[in-house]
Simulated scan of single mutants.
Amino acid sequence: MNTLYLSHPDCLDHQTQLGHPERADRLLVVERALEQEIFSGLLRESAPRGDETLALLAHPEDYVRDIYEALPREDIINVADDTVLSPGSWNAAMRALGACSYAVDEVVTRKVDNAFCAIRPPGHHAERDRPMGFCLFNNAAIAARHAQKEHGVDRVAIFDWDVHHGNGTQDIFWADKSVLYASTHEMPLFPGTGAASERGEHDTIVNAPLHAGDGSPAFREALESVILPRIEAFSPDLIIISAGFDAHWRDPLANINLTEADFALATRAILNLADRRCGGRVVSILEGGYDLVGLSRSVAAHVTTLMRG
C-alpha cells in the first residue's frame, strides 16, 4: 500500500504560550513515532507551501486578510480565547494548506493510495469567518473544496473523530449537499455544538455524540450504526478524515476512553468503505491530540493501518 506522509518544519513555527496544549512538541512526537522500522515503506515528502488562494476556498477574503494583518512581529497574541498568532503562524498555516491540497492531488490522481498530513495549526473549529479552538483555517474543508475545484470531484465525505465537535466544518458545509460531514465527539464539551438533531439543510450533517466516560463499545457502536452507513449511502468520491486523537484515554482535555486499537479499527473500516465506494481514496489530516504519549501511539496505529498493516 502506497501511503504518503506529509509534514514540514514550518509547522513547528506556530508558537503558543507555555502550557498551551496545542504545541510544537505534538509534531515532534509524531515524527519520532514514525521513525520506527515498521514505517520504512512510508512515502515521505515535505509539504509544499500553499497560499491564500487555498484559504479562500473556505473563508471570505476579509477574514483571510484580517488573519494575515494581525500577525505579530514578535511575541504571541490572542485572536480568540484559546487561539493565538505568532510570527511564524502564517507560514505554518500555509504549509498545512499546502500539505492538504497536495495530498488530495496525489490521492485523487491515484499516484498514491492514501495520505496522512501531520500539520499544525489544526483546522476543524475554524468557521467561515471566525478562528477558534486553536484553529485559524479549516484544513479539511479546504481539502474538500480543492478536490472539487481542481479535480472535478463531485461528493466528498469528511469523518471527524476528534473528541471535540468540528463546529467549523459543520458551519462551512451546513447548506452544501455535495459534502457529508460526519462526527463522533464528546458532548457536552467545547465547542457546545454537535447534537444529533443538527443535520444541515440537506441532511448531510451526521452527528453521533458520545458521553463523558464512554469508551470503545460506545464509539464502535456509533461507528457501525450511524457513521459508516451514512457515509456508505452518500457514496463519496473521496473520504477525508479529520484525525484528532484526543479521544484517547490519556488525553487531558476530554473524557472519552479510546485506545490505539479503536483508531486502528476506525481507520480500517474507512479504508474498506473507501475500497467499495471511491477506489480507496482517503486523505487523513491531523487535528487534536494533546497527551504526547497517547498521540504518538495513536498516530502510529493509524498510519500502520493506512499502510494496510
Rank of each mutant, 00 (worst) to 15 (best):
L12I: 10
D10L: 12
A196R: 11
N139K: 03
D51P: 13
S7M: 08
W249L: 15
A233W: 02
N255P: 07
D129F: 13
G98S: 13
D237V: 04
P191V: 13
L85Y: 02
V226H: 13
L136A: 08
I239V: 04
R277M: 06
R26S: 02
R230Y: 03
E52S: 12
I239K: 00
T259F: 12
P209H: 00
L286S: 09
T53Q: 06
D105A: 13
R26L: 05
A301S: 06
I285Q: 09
F263C: 14
W161I: 07
R44K: 15
D246I: 13
W174V: 06
R297Q: 15
K111W: 03
E74P: 05
V30F: 11
S183L: 14
G19A: 14
H165P: 05
G123D: 12
A157P: 01
R155G: 04
P121S: 10
L28P: 01
D171L: 08
I205W: 09
T304F: 12
L228N: 03
A182T: 00
E221N: 08
H164K: 05
F116K: 13
E69L: 11
D262T: 03
S284H: 02
T169E: 04
R155L: 07
L306S: 00
D176W: 01
V79L: 11
F173P: 14
G289L: 00
R26G: 12
T109A: 09
D82P: 10
T305R: 04
H185D: 04
V107D: 01
C135H: 03
R220F: 11
A115H: 06
I76P: 15
L4G: 14
S235Q: 10
G98D: 00
F116R: 14
R220C: 07
G152W: 12
G289D: 06
H124R: 05
D66C: 12
V30N: 02
L12W: 14
H8Y: 04
I227C: 05
N2S: 15
I77E: 08
G288R: 10
P209C: 10
G50A: 00
T83F: 07
A261W: 10
A212M: 01
A301W: 14
E52F: 04
L228C: 03
N207F: 11
H165C: 07
G19R: 08
R199I: 11
R281Y: 05
T193F: 12
C278K: 00
L265E: 06
N257R: 10
T305S: 14
I205P: 13
A80S: 06
H185N: 11
S284M: 05
V179K: 10
H211E: 00
